[in-house]
Design a protein around this nucleic acid. Structure first.
Lengths: 322, 322
DNA sequence: TAAAAATACTCCATAGGTATTTTAT
DNA sequence: ATAAAATACCTATGGAGTATTTTTA
């Protein structure tokens, strides 16, 4: 009768040998073949090195992983368990390595996007489709109907990574790239006299009640006021709306008219008519990002989105691309 | 304006540096503190060694994990991802190490147990409770109502790890430890004349029709026949049952009487009466295992179960413990 | 007796240490 | 000016190789 005596932990490798992936890789190879020689060959190491490493692992664990005679090597029950765990761990390491590379290459990750009211309908589909196609592992998180200042706040606070907004008035900690120059268009309710007029120009709006964004710094408001001034009048600001949805609802209800970027055409609401304005000004649409943002996925998304916007004609008469 | 130039993969560590847990441990420490000096201190290594290891990891990945100036260290997005993964991997390794040790110590694992018909009711509760209490991470998988030969087959085939069976007639590849010596008892239907007799002895069974196990090698059958022979008669073998449940059902139905180990008392069936037999023989109950089985959890379970059986009195008159 | 794992030893690659320089605030 | 990371260089541990022995089927 004899008793199996396990090597004491740290009897030979005084407390200092920590388990390394090398041990697990070696162990997995031996566990798969149950043959030190063959495993050593596939690992491109000499057999004694393998034996040594496995001994080290067993010693560190204080557990026998193989029952071996010179003719037969077999996993112990503990060894069988470790075989599964080792595989899981090694696969996990591989996955982590690939994941890191994909993130660094901008092929994976999350981009939180803020959108102006009108862009949500006209540009978001193009954007989302392009990203889905070119960067299938990139997730977009959309925050819609955000006015420019809110988007800038979001970018600065780090709750937003990308904005689709109206360019002027952003600090230089935010980098802006214009992607579209849109002509302004008229929105009236279906029963409005201008809904059937053959041609509409800014001058026709002189005495109309305007529905405008309530935010004083709204870039759309500014563009509208500029267009009105060019036509020789100041708009009658009768109603204010906090966002595009409300603005269009008020117009549809007949409370007034509105002049908005022509991308609202992508949202043909019931009872609402959109008319060209031959002499109205234009307004830019731009992508905005933190200048200091080093997330590679953001650069990748911006590249894909810019290409998609450049390639897509967003419907007839929706302004001229830059 | 200068451009960050990533070290080419394998520019300096020619294709040979594989990622090791050391790299992940170092990385995790730096990622947590965002400070090479402090991380080096907690890791008990010098700062240059840390810098070097992180560089190695970055080079192997081809990815920048930290943006560092001498005054500020910050994780890149890829680094943030790896921080999570590294933690998961390192925890996984730790768990695997503990799991292996627990298995090797017999404190964790699965034991598949085969039970004889009567033991399922009398001994299984004691057994299961003891294992649950002493070895909470050990799972028992029970296969009930198995006769001795079936259990031996199961043990040899490796579908069973432990048997609770009737000792004789097992080869020496199976190791047997007797845990109980049970007296044989009489089972009759409630309306049988012997159900109310003040004292019953073997001789009273001389002309009764017996219900016996159909398996010719049944150890219970042998013990019964031996007891009858000692009382001077051979049992009238009128009916046969494949297992204990059927056997008791037949007795209850009044098709005959049966003599069985007194542990059937743990299963007081409707319409069935159990009587002591003063002069009947005894039959052993034993734990059986593969002699070559080196699963530590099995040894642990056997230890716990034997102690539990020794400590428990399985009800009045249920035989004498060895 | 032959195949295969363990041992004995040797060596050099490299992890890690010390000293110093660079850099950014 | 100073804190902190990078660089340069050196040392020595230990991983891996070759040669040999031991073991068992």
């Amino acid at each position: 009768m004899y008793e199996v005596v396990y090597l004491e932990r740290s009897s030979r490798w005084g407390e200092g040998v920590s388990v390394e992936l090398r041990h697990l890789r070696y162990f997995a190879a031996v566990a798969d073949t149950c043959h030190f020689g063959q495993a050593a060959a596939t690992l491109h190491v000499a057999q004694p090195a393998l034996s040594y490493a496995i001994r080290q692992l067993e010693s560190e664990l204080g557990v026998e992983l193989f029952t071996r005679t010179t003719r037969r090597v077999a996993l112990t029950v503990a060894g069988e368990y470790l075989q599964g765990e080792a595989r899981r761990i090694l696969d996990g390491v591989d996955d982590a390595m690939h994941g890191v590379r994909r993130i660094a290459e901008g092929r994976s990750g999350l981009v939180r996007v803020g959108l102006t009211g009108t862009a949500a309908f006209s540009h978001l589909p193009v954007m989302a489709r392009a990203v889905k196609r070119e960067l299938p592992d990139v997730a977009l998180q959309i925050e819609a109907d955000m006015l420019t200042p809110a988007q800038c706040d979001g970018l600065r606070a780090g709750t937003l990574d990308l904005g689709l907004l109206r360019p002027p008035a952003v600090g230089d900690d935010i980098e802006v790239r214009i992607v579209e120059q849109e002509r302004l268009a008229l929105v009236v309710s279906a029963d409005h006299r201008l809904a059937v007029e053959p041609v509409v120009s800014m001058a026709d709006l002189r005495s109309e009640p305007f529905v405008m964004y309530e935010n004083r710094e709204s870039a759309v408001n500014e563009a509208v006021i500029r267009s009105c001034r060019a036509a020789g009048f100041a708009p009658r600001r009768d109603h204010e709306a906090p966002g595009t949805a409300v603005l269009l609802a008020l117009v549809t209800a007949g409370l007034g008219i509105a002049v908005v970027p022509s991308s609202v055409r992508a949202l043909p609401l019931q009872g609402m008519v959109i008319r060209d304005l031959a002499d109205a000004g234009t307004i830019d649409l731009a992508l905005a990002r933190r200048a200091a943002d080093d997330n590679p996925v953001l650069a990748a998304v911006i590249g894909v989105v810019e290409a998609a916007f450049a390639a897509s004609v967003l419907g007839p008469d929706v302004g001229t691309a830059t």
